[in-house]
Nucleic acid binder design. Structure first.
Length: 595
RNA sequence: GGUCUCGUAGCUCAGCUGGAUAGAGCAGCAGCCUUCUAAGCUGCGGGUCGCAGGUUCGAAUCCUGCCGGGAUCACCA
């Protein structure tokens, strides 16, 4: 905001001094590097070519002009092509006074516009959530909050993949080998129980394939011919034919999975406004395909399978209906997208889905377009990178996955251990303590994941990754808790209006540094929204917390020398605390009053 | 092989819409608690920004090529 004002003033100054119009897009203003005096810097090099004058001369002229005309420039120094500008301290004080009491500082109210629909999580009901889902959920939930703070009308949706061949695998295995085991009888969360049978199926299936290969079959053929696979396919067929017994089993087991997921989401602190089930949308997808077929936009082969010809678009043919009449993932997604569009008419349809599905979404958009859906352009695939372990990719088949429930549980335990070691539990009840462990443990996990650019592949080391010191969630929570502690001790009522600021108090440099960071919070939120990146918020709030801790260490708040300073510092601290809380909220992270 | 993506300190990551001497945290070393919470603060060491060209007054950032890792190109989801 301040940089934009200065940019405008600089453009005006150039016009005034040199009688030359320069573009808006020149990007002349940057933050002054900390080894130089000043707040903002004008880079004059881009102007030298246009004005045909030396950097030194341009710099001097601009500095002189701005100092007398700008109203906010205290001083300037020209250093080898850079004009370092110091903003008047009173200006920073004004920024503070205008905003310090605003609880929604940086947060815009939702506009009455078409909503932004954001899908995340998208679990399969054949196995429990793992670390990859955690990243997905955290990014999706945080992004929903950030876009909301940017004034968007956000609808959070989940799409449960509750049908398909993989679901049949779990069902089949359970039917064969469970002897009627239930989550209650096994003492397991439902999603974990189902996952167990999915693994059983995969193991038995691989066993069969190995045998067939041993008997002389090619691997490819064996994968297709193994009896278990045939059984699963027949089950899927029966399911699509609404076979009563199959449906009953399906309902029963899916309910187990949902109960398990609900528990995981509750622990994680994410939620949804609307849940879609693919069993409800795949038929609509089939209808769309039938319609496309009638209009000659799609093609049917002799064996009955239906395809989209994307060769004109530089891609291949894409299957939409199998020869046995059952539908594939793409078919379902067509229906899901249509249903969402019909329901919300969103201006943007965001899918938080892993980068392994980039191709899938390219194809999805193309097929929708082919079917005449103009709104396919509003689809945005937010493709995030995979989470890898130190030894490489997670492999579900080899049991090399970090389970979401286990991981969160470990986080709570570790947080408890840390807290006890630090002796911080004196005035906590047991209930308060376990609440704190949850807050701190989750903060460590969430912040660790969200501080990384969503697009990038990241490495998670279960033993070492989670820290509670340094650039971490607990560090930021700690800063907040410290502030609250000071405020409790201060025991002065929150100031109303500007009463004590009429006193002629000028903030010291460290206080100004803090105000400078606070001042860019609104634009930071907007940037995070534009970039679809919670990492921007994470970097910001860490920066703020670090700066505050330095301030806190170097300067006494309650024992400052004069009353005006005490009051100012209390309100400054409160302001910092509020922004920390807001920013952490945008990441889906809670902050404790004490820790 | 085609397409896409990533490569920055021992490790995990910022910086990437071009700007001054490339930043944090962890790990290592050395300090700071009779004073508002030491999950904190201060200092030190640590870099051919994968390599080579190009564009530019200026490149970690943009372009090209190469090397290395990953993803994807299923009648899986």
């Amino acid at each position: 905001m301040l940089d934009q004002i200065l940019a405008q003033q600089t453009i005006a100054a150039v016009k005034e001094i040199f009688d030359t119009d320069i573009g808006q897009e020149l990007n002349l203003i940057q933050k002054t590097r900390k080894e130089f005096d000043g707040d903002l810097t004008i880079v004059v090099f881009p102007l030298t070519k246009i004005l045909r004058k030396s950097p030194q001369l341009i710099g001097e002229e601009l500095g002189k002009y701005l100092q007398t005309h700008s109203g906010m420039v205290q001083a300037y120094r020209v250093v080898s092509g850079y004009v370092n500008i110091t903003i008047k301290p009173s200006f920073w004080k004004d920024v503070f006074i205008r905003n310090y009491g605003d609880p929604s500082f940086g947060i815009l109210k939702p506009a009455a516009e078409d909503p932004v629909v954001i899908e995340y999580s998208s679990p399969n009901t054949n196995k429990p959530l793992h670390l990859g889902h955690i990243r997905n959920n955290l990014i999706g939930y945080s992004l929903a909050r950030i876009l909301g703070a940017c004034g968007e009308n956000v609808v959070k949706v989940n799409l449960v993949n509750d049908r398909g061949i993989h679901i049949c695998k779990s069902m089949l295995a359970w039917q064969r080998w469970s002897r009627g085991e239930t989550p209650e009888s096994a003492g397991m969360k439902g999603d974990h129980l189902i996952g167990k049978y999915y693994v059983l199926f995969e193991n038995a299936y691989r066993e069969q394939v190995k045998e067939l290969v041993g008997a002389g079959m090619t691997e490819e053929e064996a994968l297709r011919q193994a009896p278990l696979m045939g059984d699963a396919q027949r089950m899927l067929k029966k399911w699509e034919e609404r076979d009563k017994e199959t449906l009953a089993l399906w309902h029963r087991m899916n309910q187990w999975a949902y109960n398990g997921f609900d528990e995981t989401y509750r622990q994680m602190g994410v939620d949804f406004d609307r849940i879609y089930y693919e069993s409800d949308t795949y038929l609509l997808g089939k209808e769309l395909v039938e319609e496309g077929l009638r209009q000659g936009l799609l093609q049917r082969k002799e064996d009955g399978s239906v395809w989209a010809d994307l060769t004109a678009e530089g891609l291949d043919w894409k299957l939409l209906i199998r020869s046995d009449g059952t539908s594939v993932y793409m078919t379902q997604d067509l229906g899901t997208a249509q249903m969402r569009y019909d329901e919300f008419h969103p201006k943007k349809l965001i899918y938080v889905v892993g980068n392994e599905q980039i191709y899938h979404f390219d194809v999805l958009k193309l097929i929708l377009k082919k079917l005449g859906k103009r709104w396919s352009d509003s689809i945005y695939h937010l493709s995030y990178g995979m989470v890898e372990l130190p030894e490489g990719k997670m492999k579900s088949r080899e049991g090399k996955v970090v389970d979401a429930d286990d991981l969160m549980q470990e986080m709570f335990v570790t947080a408890g251990k840390m807290t006890r070691e630090l002796g911080k539990l004196e005035d906590f009840s047991d209930e308060e303590a376990s609440g704190l462990f949850r807050q701190v443990g989750l903060a460590a996990l969430k912040y660790f994941i969200l501080k990384v650019d969503p697009m990038k592949t990241m490495v998670f080391n279960p033993e070492e990754s989670i820290d509670f010191n340094g650039n971490t969630g607990p560090f930021i929570q700690y800063t907040y808790a410290r502030i609250q502690s000071v405020l409790r001790k201060a025991a002065v009522p929150e100031m109303s209006g500007n009463d004590f600021f009429s006193i002629d108090y000028q903030p010291i440099p460290k206080e100004i540094s803090l105000i400078k960071i606070l001042a860019v919070f609104p634009s930071t939120v907007r940037e995070a929204g534009e970039m679809y990146s919670p990492a921007v918020i994470a970097a910001y709030v860490y920066d703020l917390a670090r700066e505050y801790n330095q301030f806190y260490h170097d300067h006494s708040i309650l024992k400052a020398t004069e009353p005006a300073q005490v009051h100012f510092r209390i309100e400054l601290s409160r302001f910092v605390g509020n922004v920390i809380k807001t920013a952490m909220g945008l990441l889906g992270i809670e902050v404790p009053e004490k820790m």
